[in-house]
C-alpha cells in the first residue's frame, strides 16, 4: 500500500505533459540525449530510470517557460548528472557530460540546439531540479515493485541481485 501511494506521488502530473505537444518534443529529444550519454558511459539501468523519472517529474511539476529548448536541455543535463550521482560509483565531471552533449548535437546538425552549459549553470539547474522534486530522489519505480515481489518470494540475496541486474 505504501509503495502504491508513493508511486502515485512520483508520477503526478503525467497527463499534463502529454497535453502539450512542443513540450513533448523537447522532452523526447532531451531523453534521447540522456540515453546516448548513458550508453556511452555504461551507466546502469537504474540510472536511466532515475534520470528519466527526474526529468518527467521536473517538467510536469514546474511551469517551465514553454517552448524553451535551452531549459529543456539544461534540465536533461542536470537530471542525468543527479541520477548518476545517486546511483553510480564513478561519476564524470559536469563538463564531460556536457561535451558528450555538445558532440551529440553537433553530429546531428541540429544548429539551434548547440548549448554548452558551464558547471555553475548546471549546478544551479541541479539545485532547481532538487528543490522542485522536494529532494525526493529515490522514487518508487517499477523496479521497486519487482524488488518487493522478489523479496516476498523469498529468493536468496544473490539471486535477487542477479534478477535485478537482468531487468
Amino acid at each position: 500500500v505504501c509503495l502504491l501511494s508513493k508511486e502515485r506521488e512520483a508520477f503526478l502530473g503525467r497527463s499534463d505533459l502529454n497535453s502539450n505537444g512542443s513540450l513533448m518534443v523537447a522532452g523526447t529529444e532531451a531523453i534521447e540525449w540522456m540515453l546516448r550519454v548513458i550508453a556511452h558511459y555504461g551507466f546502469t539501468f537504474m540510472t536511466t530510470l532515475l534520470a528519466v523519472n527526474y526529468f518527467d517529474r521536473f517538467k510536469s511539476s514546474l511551469c517551465l517557460q514553454r517552448e524553451n529548448p535551452w531549459m529543456s536541455q539544461s534540465a536533461a543535463v542536470a537530471c542525468l548528472s543527479l541520477a548518476a550521482k545517486v546511483e553510480e560509483t564513478q561519476v564524470p565531471l559536469l563538463l564531460d557530460l556536457q561535451i558528450r552533449f555538445y558532440i551529440y548535437y553537433f553530429t546531428c546538425n541540429v544548429d539551434e540546439s548547440k548549448y554548452l552549459f558551464d558547471a555553475k549553470t548546471t549546478q544551479r539547474m541541479e539545485l532547481l531540479v532538487l528543490s522542485t522534486l522536494g529532494w525526493n530522489m529515490n522514487p518508487v519505480t517499477s523496479l521497486s515493485f519487482i524488488d518487493h515481489i522478489i523479496r516476498r518470494l523469498g529468493f536468496k540475496t544473490h539471486l535477487r541481485l542477479e534478477f535485478l541486474q537482468r531487468c
Binding site: 548528472s81 543527479l82 545517486v86 561519476v91 563538463l95 558547471a119 555553475k120 529532494w135 530522489m137
Partner: peptide, 15 residues
C-alpha cells in the same frame, strides 16, 4: 564547483 551539487549531499538529503 566543477562537480555541481555533491553526490553525498544529494543522497544524504534524499535519505
Amino acid at each position: 564547483q566543477d562537480d555541481g551539487v555533491p553526490g553525498s549531499v544529494i543522497r544524504g538529503v534524499a535519505l
